[in-house]
Design a binder for these strands. Structure first.
Length: 573
DNA sequence: GCCGTTTTCGGCCCGACTGTTTTCAGTCG
């Protein structure tokens, strides 16, 4: 069984244990074990073989044993037994807002609820309202939750959430009662998807702010309306929370609600080690004696714990606190450091803008170079170029550069298809005539993991391939990544000096941020590629920068922060 | 189940809000 599948089993064990009423700390150990496993930088097989898995913080004797069995056998008797003891449908019941393990367990034991259908039935019969600890309101809320479970469970892609958040944040800042306003949560951490919006406001007069918030257009339901917290649900299912705190607590609250949960747990642990209890309201001395430090900025929150400010993107509990303590936080790449972009399309294949329009737009963005890489002939659905059309495009690019019409230098490339066996859609002598080559998989997504990995590695090994396009083919919320051994591909890229693309299309954001730190440590260069199909989409680059930052990347690790001369030098042209 | 300046047991982050209760349990983040 592969690593992420093992992590999924650990998560399921945690959920099943909740329903059986297990010790919450044991449950936490399983889910945090799953997170640790997902974030493992080293090869799992190597760690198991060398007996070093138990050295990983968060993995003890029991989890090491279970992970080892799952890796070896693909199944775990403990897990199977647990599954058999809990109706499978209860996992869905647990997804209904307002229903946690205790309530689900009561519904199961008292009313025989084993799935959503039965839950709906007992609610409609009025039996739930009669149950101890339940009532009429809860029953209504459950029915609503069942009806809307698809919309409520959905996570939204970052830029969709950002588009909803921006006007609300601007509106909050314009209110006379508001001193500070920020968005927090996964939006601030630049996650690829956002489950709900978190707004944070500093004000000494919260009531009007709360009232303004719950009256936003598009609000379908107000799920909480208190003194410091209100929650609303929009028509599209997106939930938004607003917290209002006094100005003195604002930066503690901002830190707290930015998260992640794992980061906060680690910070609180660190605070306790210094005799301080930490919450969204600030520090409190554990012994009640000394005066706890306040904070007039987020920097001061970190400084109080002996740390430099940690950028929100890094706050995932992946070693950012240790890095901060060691003075080893990366100087994250910034959007203004981008000097040009590769991998863009024109009307020659499936783009909507001509070569000239794209060049003009790139120049307008102040870039020094623009890589054009239309599809190759196998991608006939995208009007892929054959050798003759490619030669004509290369000539057109040369003429455009020679004309002096634009200061931006256009680089002639190709997004060449990787064929089934890992050979490429163009012969080596054709590729040799290009400024750069992006190799991408566009078909056969269902090859098994071994075949897909071998196919991609063979392409990476071609001396003419400069970068590997959208490594996993995922479309966020729409299509799962295909099966591929990412660490092996990273190793192959490192060995062959091949760059990996960070495809900045907001549907893709591929390779995923979770792998970049590891890839960079292996010496693999990143290229942030918009994969633009029109002039507007050149702006996707900023999504790519956000993901690169989340992946701990510095400017030095991103190819297209280099000036034109440096890029030409790297390409060997 | 994990972990150790609390070291093989006994802790484990902290608080708001709701609904069902007459003081608090459960959920959520």
């Amino acid at each position: 069984m592969e690593r992420n599948d093992i992590a999924a089993v650990l998560d399921e064990i945690a959920t099943l244990l909740e329903l059986t009423g297990e010790n919450p700390f044991k449950i936490r150990a399983y889910s945090s074990g799953a997170r640790v496993l997902e974030g493992l930088a080293e090869d799992l097989d190597v760690l198991i073989a060398e007996g070093r898995l138990a050295d990983v913080p968060g993995l003890g004797e029991a989890l090491v044993e279970k992970i080892t069995v799952l890796r070896r056998d693909g199944a775990l008797p403990f897990h199977q037994k647990l599954r058999a003891s809990v109706p499978a449908g209860l996992l869905e019941v647990l997804q209904i807002p307002g229903l946690g393990p205790k309530k689900v367990r009561a519904l199961w034991k008292e009313l025989g609820v084993e799935d959503l259908a039965k839950l709906k039935e007992v609610c409609e019969a009025g039996a739930v309202a009669e149950l101890k600890g339940f009532g009429a309101k809860t029953q209504t809320k459950i029915l609503e939750g069942i009806k809307n479970r698809v919309a409520y469970g959905k996570r939204h892609r970052w830029y969709q959430a950002a588009a909803v958040a921006e006007p609300i944040l601007a509106g909050l800042r314009a209110l006379p009662q508001v001193v500070h306003a920020e968005s927090a949560g996964s939006l601030r951490r630049n996650r690829e998807t956002v489950g709900d919006l978190d707004f944070l406001v500093a004000s000494s007069d919260p009531a009007p702010v709360m009232d303004w918030f719950v009256a936003r257009p598009g609000v379908k339901e107000v799920t909480a309306h208190g003194e410091t917290k209100s929650s609303v649900r929009f028509e599209n299912g997106l939930q938004a929370d607003l917290r209002v705190v006094p100005a003195a607590q604002f930066f503690f609250a901002l830190h707290h609600f930015t998260g992640s949960k794992e980061h906060n747990v680690a910070m609180r642990h660190r605070a306790l080690g210094r005799g301080l209890s930490m919450s969204e309201w600030g520090f409190k001395p554990v012994d009640g004696g000394t005066v706890a430090p306040g904070a007039a900025s987020e920097e001061e929150v970190f400084r109080a714990l002996g740390l430099p400010w940690i950028p929100p993107e890094l706050r995932e509990g992946n070693g950012e606190i240790e890095a901060a303590e060691a003075g080893a936080l990366p100087d994250l790449v910034r959007h203004e450091q981008i000097r040009g972009v590769f991998h863009n399309h024109t009307t020659e294949s499936d783009g909507d803008a001509t070569l000239e329009q794209m060049a003009a737009a790139a120049e307008g963005r102040g870039w020094e170079y623009l890589g054009v890489s239309d599809h190759s002939k196998s991608s006939f659905q995208a009007r892929g170029l054959d050798e003759a059309r490619l030669a004509a495009q290369v000539a057109a690019v040369a003429r455009l550069n020679a004309s002096g019409r634009f200061r931006v230098r256009v680089l002639a490339g190709s997004e060449v298809d990787i064929l089934r066996d890992g050979t490429l859609d163009f012969a080596d002598d054709v590729l040799a005539g290009l400024d750069f080559v992006v190799a991408s998989v566009h078909n056969l997504f269902t090859l098994d993991r071994e075949a897909q990995t071998a196919r991609i590695i063979r392409a990476v090994e071609n001396e003419h391939v400069d970068m590997l396009g959208h490594l996993t083919g995922r479309l966020i919320n729409r299509r799962e990544p295909y099966e591929v051994d990412i660490p092996k591909v990273i190793d192959a890229c490192a060995a062959n000096g091949t760059c990996i693309e960070l495809n900045a299309n907001p549907w893709r954001l591929d390779m995923d941020w979770r792998w970049w730190r590891h890839a960079a440590e292996k010496g693999v260069l990143c290229s942030i590629n918009p994969d633009a199909h029109d002039v507007e989409q050149l702006g996707f680059t900023e999504h790519g920068v956000r993901v690169a930052r989340k992946g701990w990347l510095t400017a030095g690790q991103v190819l297209n922060t280099r000036p034109l001369a440096g890029v030409l030098d790297w390409l060997g042209r």
